[in-house]
Nucleic acid binder design. Structure first.
Lengths: 94, 94
DNA sequence: CTAAATATTATCATATTTGATAACTTTTGT
DNA sequence: ACAAAAGTTATCAAATATGATAATATTTAG
């Protein structure tokens, strides 16, 4: 029983390590999406309402926020999203 | 002579005010470009060298950095620029 | 001052994002 | 449980960024 547990432990550690690696690789994009969603929710807006403010459609907001989507939004899109949720975009290079 | 100077002064003040307004409106984009240029120079790279590292052409770097250009770069483009100059992109919404 | 180095500009092709629409799925409220 | 609300997904059109090339302009080094 303990041998199976050790094998499972190693496998799980490997999986976590792999996920972590992918997470790190996608870090800025991942972080941006998390922030987009947080801002919208903090503003108490549905995707549809936000879309309305931004002059677009909810499906486009969904695409922007989706972790399954590999798109790389343009700066002006992020600026508009920020404004619509009461924020301002700030880009740094660290 | 003093009347002409006064007229020119007002005109210049108007122009500056107008430029300032446009500057403010374009603030994030303007700031990004300034940072791009600073990073490249800090890294001691010409546009041509940087282009080489990024796998593109110097003219494309020039376009990215140009204050006369109204393009809105994609996030992945900025990520690649950052990496090539030894930095990492960080996006915030303040 | 001058040539080399560096940067800019224009143009067209290609790639990718955003716009628009509709169908579908999941979540929420009662 | 069920309908409405909210979010997702796919698709195609339009818009825009990037790739690639070449000519031109500006800056720099000697």
């Amino acid at each position: 029983m303990s041998r199976t547990t050790l094998k499972q432990f190693k496998e799980k550690a490997f999986q976590n390590s792999k996920v972590q690696e992918e997470y790190d690789l996608l870090k800025p994009e991942y972080a941006i999406k998390k922030k987009l969603i947080a801002m919208r929710k903090d503003a108490g807006l549905t995707q549809e309402k936000l879309a309305e403010i931004m002059g677009t459609k909810k499906s486009n907001i969904s695409r922007l926020e989706s972790f399954k989507s590999s798109i790389s939004p343009r700066i002006d899109t992020l600026i508009n999203y920020a404004k619509a949720t009461g924020h301002e975009l700030k880009v740094d290079f660290v």
